[in-house]
Design a protein around this nucleic acid. Structure first.
Length: 412
RNA sequence: CGGAGUGUAGUAUAACGGCAGUAUACGUGCUUUGGGAGCACGUGGUCUGGGUUCAAUUCCCAGCACUCCGACCA
């Protein structure tokens, strides 16, 4: 797939100064991302591969519950925000175009999706429906921080659903919760479904998906035995209390919010006059839900949770490559040929492999392999001979395997 | 937006107000080859604008940038 000698990026020998967050330190040092302004990052080839893997998993689970992918505009005209009374919020980048038109960069898309839906939803027979997009969102954070965890520009998958009854919304809401749990599990995160307040979006309680981690900005109280969890903002329990559901002990921890789900009700459908005709021929406002999950925030959270002092430890499902093939320097020309052949064979069998063919010392290759965190490290050297020395990133033990065994192991 | 701090080479760091140094990276050559190798030579730098001074990386002012704490927020 890729020769490391030709990779666009290089690793840094030291952690960047001016970065404290683990995710920023490791992702920048490894060459996954580059900070271009506070809270504004470029996704470099390695980082984009991770992001694409995360997004692929999200798409699969969204499609599985009937979500239809679309893509809305980032340039959202003032008229849309005015209808929902969200022009002049403090999170929006608002500006006047050279022609005097006023826009806000999309920081959420309830307005846009509702406006679009008015053209296509007419009857109860059209419902329920759901659409989603994966798109860059822009929010004027007064203080960007924690690397990818709080940026001013970040990737978001936002899903919107349309219903003719509260029951239908409730049902879909539960389906999304399950889908989000699957997504988070598949990418390698343990998340708590946490009760929370609706923030700027709704007055109702909502649910957040919180991953316990020291870098988290939220605090959650959770039961150590069952699934009970509440955000500190609304918590009715404290650390050391008895769980109201099961009697277990309540603990508390900082946590990273990687996703959330909201029941919007008819707030936006009324603002945009999104209605359908019911069985009796009466016009009714469409009932809506909105559901967000943040791919870039997931990426950062993965690094926060899966690392050691040497670098990142990517879960296999989202790693930029499956195998990091290292060819150690040798005078033995046959060895070099063998390495090339193994690289080609792996490539041909569809395995994603990063081949470290660089003319650098063994130590540097090992250090880079640990930093980049690709799940399997395969070494070809004088020592391994005709075999391949295979080691998992999070294991200390290596073993000698043949090519076929390697293909099998990493192909699942 | 309030408070604190930091801006020196691609990266990481030194320098009483007195020739801007080291490491690493990069280039060339030789040596080396299992945990960030060695030698030689070479390229490359004081955030911007003012001020004080014979002299400013250093002191002062302003701006800009970044980090952290707070407020705010996915």
């Amino acid at each position: 797939m890729m020769l490391q000698s030709r990779l666009f990026t290089k690793t840094l020998k030291s952690f960047p100064k001016d970065e404290e967050a683990i995710n920023a330190k490791m992702l920048i040092r490894g060459g996954f991302i580059r900070k271009m302004s506070a809270g504004v990052y470029a996704q470099l080839p390695l980082g984009l591969r991770v992001l694409d893997k995360i997004n692929r998993i999200i798409r699969e689970e969204m499609n599985a519950i009937g979500g239809q992918e679309m893509l809305m505009q980032a340039l959202v005209a003032k008229e849309y925000w005015e209808k929902s009374k969200r022009w002049h919020t403090d999170v929006a980048y608002e500006f006047k175009s050279p022609f005097g038109e006023e826009f806000a960069l999309g920081w959420t898309h309830e307005e846009v999706v509702t406006a679009i839906a008015t053209h296509f939803i007419n009857s109860y027979k059209d419902l329920p429906l759901s659409v989603y997009q994966i798109q860059t969102k822009y929010r004027a954070e007064p203080r960007a921080k924690n690397g990818l965890l709080r940026g001013r520009e970040f990737m978001m998958k936002d899903l919107y659903s349309f219903h003719s009854s509260k029951e239908s919304l409730d049902d879909f809401y539960q389906q999304v919760i399950k889908a989000y749990q699957k997504i988070l599990k598949r990418v390698g995160l343990k998340a708590l479904v946490t009760e929370a307040s609706g923030g700027a979006f709704t007055k109702e309680y909502t649910h957040e998906f919180q991953v316990l981690a020291p870098a988290g900005e939220d605090v959650v109280f959770y039961c150590k035995q069952c699934d009970f969890a509440q955000n500190k903002e609304i918590a009715h329990v404290q650390k050391g209390n008895i769980c109201p559901l099961c009697g277990g002990e309540i603990g508390s921890s900082p946590a990273i919010e990687v996703a959330n789900v909201f029941k919007l009700g008819t707030r936006y459908s009324e603002a945009f006059n999104l209605t359908y005709t019911d069985k009796d021929g009466n016009r009714q406002p469409v009932i809506m839900g909105s559901y967000g999950i943040g791919p870039t925030r997931i990426m950062a959270t993965l690094v926060e949770v899966h690392n050691d002092e040497k670098g990142i430890i990517w879960p296999e499902s989202v790693a930029p490559y499956q195998i990091h093939l290292l060819e150690l320097k040798s005078k033995n020309g046959a060895l070099k040929l063998n390495a090339k052949k193994i690289y080609k064979d792996l490539k041909d069998s569809g395995i994603e492999v990063l081949f470290d063919d660089r003319d650098v010392s063994a130590g540097e290759k090992f250090a880079d392999a640990d930093l980049l965190g690709i799940p399997w490290r395969a070494v070809i050297s004088e020592k391994s001979g005709a075999k391949i020395e295979l080691k998992k990133r999070d294991s200390k033990e290596a073993k000698l395997v043949g090519l076929q065994e390697l293909q099998k192991l990493t192909n699942n």
